[in-house]
Nucleic acid binder design. Structure first.
Lengths: 200, 200
DNA sequence: GCGATCCACCTAAAGGCTTTAGGTGAATAT
DNA sequence: ATATTCACCTAAAGCCTTTAGGTGGATCGC
């Protein structure tokens, strides 16, 4: 009944658990050590420091999310794909709030480039293949989708929509309807504003 | 040359400054005390604890933001108002990243209800007066706008759009075009999905 | 005037988290 | 057998938070 020995991987996973339980900000080397019934200093052989631990959790979360997204969009297109992708983010955030927060942890550019981040962008791009958009509108749309998904999910799970009817399930459905409609009828650029006054 | 004495208000303002300089998460009672050239323990007469300080900064940021928003939408309507409101959030986040983060700090329900939060919701609702939406679509739209503004701003200022062309200025303009178009042509609800298969 | 109060800030101290330095014992390799 | 490695430990320093209990100066009432 030897307990398996510590390593970065196991620490990262336990850290992710911990994040879901107590919040990503509350993930602490000390608490993690406590859970493994080991002294805090011992963790420093496996993980560089507290920051390193958080980064690893963030990378794990990004991977998990990308894997789910990848499964979800496979074999779907158009609104079906859009909905599936959107639900992946929302569901993940609800099931794993700590990990979701971790996934938004700011990484330095190099780490970010080697993370699953780019996979997420490619996934969104893939969903947009079901709509008739060319560059640069495709990129604009990728960013818009990213903004809505992230914004919605973070406001909803942050309780931002709490004290008001109607229920958020409705809003979510209608938001996806709206995005689908928008992508199908992507508007041409408006005339640039003449500073302040009405367009002549 | 008596230095003005400490009080909650001044601490909160200095805390907001500090947040913009070093990040909201890094705002610490100790550091704040250092800036006032005073011992940390002294701050506890003015502020209950570290959490209380953060909440006060959050409330301050929400107020500032609501004031700016209120100025911006006054006398404007339609897309003009939409753009003005959106820009308030984006500009504020860029000018005051720490405060902006603070404004997203999770407040307990009662505190939230007494904060400027509800003013923000009313403001967004006011902007929507320029579009032809009835309840519950109006509420859905309020939430959608909130999501896009928050999501966009937080991804952009978190560097989420960095390593890709085209520039984010373009995307922002086109995002607002898209939202305007969407609000002008808000879609009817789609048929509810029959679980998985195609609609008969 | 003068003691009672108050106020703003202080020192002391306890408790927590982080991180480095320097072991220790057991298992493995030579 | 001896050397090395591995996983974890103790010690200690540094920083942050928070509570308890002053201290000196300013203000108030008699």
């Amino acid at each position: 009944m030897e307990r398996p020995t510590l390593n970065a991987r196991r620490l990262t996973e336990a850290g992710a658990e911990l994040a879901d339980e107590v919040g990503f900000e509350q993930v602490t080397v000390s608490e993690l050590a406590r859970r493994f019934d080991v002294k805090a200093a011992s963790l420093y052989s496996h993980v560089r420091n507290s920051e390193d631990l958080k980064v690893r959790i963030a990378l794990l979360a990004l991977e998990e999310l990308a894997d789910r997204a990848s499964d979800a969009v496979a074999g779907r297109s158009g609104k079906d794909a859009l909905t599936a992708l959107a639900n992946v983010y929302r569901d993940y955030a609800r099931e794993h709030p700590g990990r979701y927060t971790a996934a938004r942890y700011r990484l330095d550019p190099e780490t970010a480039a080697n993370s699953a981040g780019p996979r997420h962008a490619r996934m969104t791009r893939a969903v947009l293949r079901g709509y008739d958009l060319d560059e640069p509108d495709r990129t604009h749309a990728v960013r818009l989708l990213g903004s809505v998904f992230h914004g919605y999910v973070s406001l909803e799970s942050g309780g931002g929509f709490d004290h008001s009817a109607p229920d958020t399930e409705q809003t979510w459905t209608r938001t996806l309807d709206a995005l689908d409609a928008l992508l199908r009828h992507w508007p041409a650029p408006s005339a640039p504003p003449t500073d302040q006054g009405p367009t002549p």
